[in-house]
Design a protein around this nucleic acid. Sequence first.
DNA 1: ATGAGTGTGTAGTATTAATTACACATGCTA
DNA 2: TAGCATGTGTAATTAATACTACACACTCAT
Lengths: 117, 117
Amino acid sequence: MLHFGEHIRQAREALQEQDRTFSLRQVAARVGIEPAYLSKIERGIFQPPSEDVIVKLAGVLGEDKDVLLALAGKLSSDLQQIIIQRPKLFAELLRQLREVPDYAILRVVREVRDGQW
Amino acid sequence: MLHFGEHIRQAREALQEQDRTFSLRQVAARVGIEPAYLSKIERGIFQPPSEDVIVKLAGVLGEDKDVLLALAGKLSSDLQQIIIQRPKLFAELLRQLREVPDYAILRVVREVRDGQW
DNA sequence: ATGAGTGTGTAGTATTAATTACACATGCTA
DNA sequence: TAGCATGTGTAATTAATACTACACACTCAT
């Protein structure tokens, strides 16, 4: 798997091919960081940035923020809060789901969404 | 709800009544921190300590580490890793479970544990 | 009444995370 | 060919986080 910076660079360059405003400098400006900083992030010279910056990047690049945060080794603080509200419950659930295959978890997601409770 | 420090103090003092070795100083020694530091944590003068220290405290005091971390506003990094492995899947699941009552989540826990998959 | 153990005040430090500022060389484009 | 935009190198700074060190006053058992 690509590391965070490589992923950002690929996403940005893909967009840049269609729309010149996705230059490193302009994206950095929209996100509110220095171009030199983004440059080093994309090349993996610097650590991935803060959650806040990652979320803005996701917005600008049209990427999924949870996936981007995960590539950075981070977990969005709103998800953290959900667990922290009921730590015992969610800790047990998550440790249990650790080895459960995707399709089985998706089934739970659907059941909950369709409100069979 | 009590804040982190108050909770620690209550737990420690309860143990101290039965066993004098649960003095602030001795607990601090077992955990590997300075007594003055623990003192300030218990009184809420300092922020809750690092995850590492909280986990050791939980061990020494016989408390649930996830609950203690939650009181500190933190989420254990092993739980974070579980989510980060499959961010889209777990992000959706958690946001969906946000408003689901405890008993319904417990049902899922049991179903998974009993292996009806 | 002294020595060991108790909790706490003041002050300062170490480490890491997260970034900025500025200058430079290259390339497009009007 | 002048000007503007591009990406990048070097160096430094800011801002939290997570503590330590040491001294002091009090209590309690011997």
